[in-house]
Design a protein around this nucleic acid. Structure first.
Lengths: 364, 364
DNA sequence: CTGAAAGCGCTTACAG
DNA sequence: CTGAAAGCGCTTACAG
């Protein structure tokens, strides 16, 4: 039914071995130029493609990489993952490899599946993505099973030999600080995440170190706060800073958190009649944001969530090296994206303005 | 190195065939209860898992489904795809199948890859997702190669035998119309997409038919417009309607377009001091939206982009049936989601209000 | 320069 | 109730 090697061999009165050799152009497969042509023509004509399973069995490899991850709630995580799939799939295809994707609700299921994939020899290389609290155990499992993998994360200290990729979080926020200082700002406030994953600490470290390096002073602890997705709480934090008398008030904001922090910042400013960096003397902001990030009123520079694509793009040569068994590459890759102008709805330009309706704080 | 069937067979002094039979609990594999236990124990102890390649070769199937699609620009499409991967991967795992994902920049590459997958017998079933102008040719190729597939799309007329899944777009907008009419609105405007894919026409059809059915009159052609991502143009369209004298002005909006249409609607209203459905007598809206949809000021009901997950979830039993070779299922599946309250930033409640700065229209 | 043979690790009739 | 054999479709030494 499907064309087999044997079919084209017998049709040409050649041995399957010769046909295989020519089709894979093995250096020791000697055939006259004419035979070679006949083989190639017949293969094309019969639409011959070697059975993936047979080839995998005899070659001992499947030419497949597996992306296995734990599902996390929220659209942000998902958008990050699809970027991975897009990038890795494309780059793997370019070297003749396939990508298998599986995701699970729990870490246990992920671990079990990884072990199954390794034991069934379904993939030659693995991509681990997600929070370090998950990926570390995943990496240790693969390591113990002797399976090559690429992991997103900051494991330079804990697992320096792992093939790993991540942002230089410190450098990113240092850039943000330098940017704001270059605009003339001297009183900087910092908004981070509430949890303390390694990258969250690295972000804050980037802020404090750059503060010291550029301004020569320690950052003021009372201008260091954290936001999660609770709008009211975020507005309390930022509103509190903005309520200070002008000489003490921070004039710029370094954001090491998600879109909710930006939203709180913009609405708090709006309540006092201002917007980010639109008129002279208004506060400025710089930092990180999630996917689908859009300012409402003002302007700012940010690292867009889309940078995750670039991260994957940066990491894929490594992954491919693992697949092709080329070792000797520096295992730790760090990526420093560029700050770019954030998209803005520019509502001010569309006739929407704001005024102070309430005394302070928000009511949801 | 890795445990093979042979290893456990020889360790137990049994034939590989018996071990295989017991492990796969074939009905005709007879072993004493004790032998059976010894086999199971040994397999567990040695962490035995059959080689996927060997098994695929001898069984003639890979237990794999392939999701192959053309990459489309824009985060919206990507978010839709990641939902697919999440859902299909999870549901396939549940029946012991893997998911292979590949995407390409061009349709030609997609077609070539599909043919390769079929010819190399890399997958038993296929998932086609994307625009109909792409998926139709993809489906026809798979059909000619006799490969089972599930396609997202409205092919009830052109390919009624295809296993296909999609929204009932007509029904969705009909629900939106009925909702607005039930709130007392009588002058409805419609905003659609500019292109004319089958689903875009179905959306509009849903509006016009429901208008006729609920109000007993044809919809007014001058209140039917289309939006793309050009903000100014969108605001011209909607602003034009809102500039009409009050007795002629539409009081409700049916949205058969993306987030840009909602944004234009809200900013146009804001320019005239109003918001969606917040105060009595204000205009209302209902319709479809993309992922990550959030209103700024007002309230509305919408079909969220997240419904694509549910669509995939609805479709996966079909896909799994194809994998398991159970035919005889109705090939056409249609899904009617529920209108739900759209998330809103509620900026009004956070001290942000608006006023008319410009005469009309927008300036970007 | 070329072909016959063994083997990859399973599964599946089939003979006892 | 059990085991020996053939076969899935390739690739890879190896002998000529």
């Amino acid at each position: 039914m499907k064309t087999r090697l044997k079919d084209i061999a017998s049709q040409l009165n050649l041995s399957p071995a010769l046909v295989s050799g020519v089709l894979n152009n093995k250096p020791n497969a000697w055939a006259s130029a004419e035979t070679r042509t006949r083989i190639l023509d017949a293969a094309r004509e019969l639409n011959y493609q070697p059975s993936a399973a047979a080839r995998a069995l005899s070659r001992g490899r499947t030419d497949t990489a597996a992306l296995v991850y734990r599902r996390l709630p929220g659209a942000g995580f998902r958008l990050a993952y699809t970027g991975l799939v897009d990038v890795f799939s494309a780059e793997l295809q370019a070297v003749g490899h396939d990508l298998m994707v599986s995701n699970f609700a729990t870490q246990d299921e992920v671990l079990e599946h990884l072990e199954r994939l390794v034991r069934t020899r379904s993939a030659e290389a693995y991509i681990l993505w997600g929070r370090e609290q998950d990926t570390e155990a995943q990496g240790m499992l693969l390591e113990s099973l002797n399976a090559p993998f690429l992991v997103k994360g900051r494991y330079e200290v804990t697992h320096p030999a792992w093939h790993q990729i991540d942002f230089v979080h410190e450098g990113m926020l240092a850039q943000a600080v330098r940017h704001l200082v270059s605009l003339g700002h001297r009183r900087l406030a910092y908004v981070g995440f509430k949890h303390s994953d390694a990258f969250v600490q690295a972000l804050r470290r980037g802020f404090t170190q750059a503060h010291r390096a550029t301004l020569g002073t320690e950052s003021d602890p009372k201008f260091v706060g954290a936001c999660d997705d609770d709008v009211v709480e975020n507005e309390d934090l930022i509103g509190g800073w903005l309520d200070l008398p002008q000489p003490q008030r921070p004039t710029a904001f370094v954001i090491g958190a998600g879109n909710a922090a930006w939203l709180a910042l913009e609405t708090c400013l709006a309540q006092t009649g201002r917007s980010l960096d639109v008129l002279p003397g208004e506060p400025a902001a710089a930092g990180i944001a999630s996917e689908s990030f859009t300012l409402m009123f003002g302007r700012a520079v940010a690292y867009q969530g889309i940078e995750l694509d670039n991260l994957a793009r940066f990491g894929s040569p490594h992954l491919i090296d693992s697949l092709l068994d080329q070792n000797g590459r520096e295992p730790i890759i760090r990526f420093l994206p560029q700050l770019t102008e954030a998209p803005s709805l520019n509502l001010l330009n569309h006739g929407v303005t704001f005024s102070c309706l309430h005394e302070s704080g928000g009511q949801s």
